[in-house]
């Protein structure tokens, strides 16, 4: 099967059961995306699929042969990455690649005018950022510093 990851196309011979997460980590050596729960419950495996954030642990690689996958390795110095560094938006770092990919996808959603359950006038208020990022858990509880990191990356 074919997978397009961070701009390069790969030919792989994979069992149909292989998730996108396992294809990235075990077969392409891209270990940035992490396996936390493997059931869609933590967000550690978040990558971008045609620019949209998704949980790669619940996606079968075989179903994504026409998609463009972007992982943390393919972000190349994105403002969200710099924001996390400047604001200390992590402790152990396990959830961080997922947090950053999720934040990049989320800022795209804000740009397109997508609403959230919070419904604030400012889509980048603290409450909004927390709600929009609620699909990413952090066992270290490093949330407080992620919020300004993400807002700053949005140029605010």
């Amino acid at each position: 099967m074919r997978l397009t990851v961070n701009g390069s196309e790969h030919e792989l011979d994979l069992d149909p059961r292989t998730t996108l997460l396992d294809a990235l980590r075990e077969h392409l050596g891209l270990t940035g995306a992490k396996k936390g729960c493997d059931h869609g419950q933590c967000g550690a495996c978040t990558v971008l699929l045609d620019g949209r954030r998704v949980n790669s642990c619940l996606i079968l690689a075989i179903a994504q042969q026409d998609a463009r996958v972007t992982t943390i390795e393919g972000l190349g110095g994105h403002p969200v990455q710099r924001g996390f560094l400047e604001h200390d938006g992590f402790q152990c770092g396990y959830c961080t690649p997922g947090q950053i990919c999720s934040a990049v996808g989320m800022l795209g959603e804000v740009e397109r005018g997508w609403p959230s359950a919070t419904g604030d006038d400012d889509p980048l208020s603290d409450a909004e950022i927390r709600e929009r990022m609620s699909g990413n858990l952090c066992r270290c509880g490093a949330y407080p510093n992620m919020v300004p990191a993400i807002r700053e990356a949005a140029g605010r």
């Binding site: 967000g43 954030r53 949980n55 999720s102 989320m106 359950a117 929009r132 699909g135 990413n136």
Partner: peptide, 22 residues
């Protein structure tokens, strides 16, 4: 969003941004 706010709100109350994208 305009005609059926309850529908948009119900969707946004479910799962996470990543899951809703799939």
């Amino acid at each position: 969003r305009q005609a059926f706010p309850l529908l948009s709100q119900a969707l946004l109350a479910g799962a996470s941004g990543q899951l809703r994208n799939m």
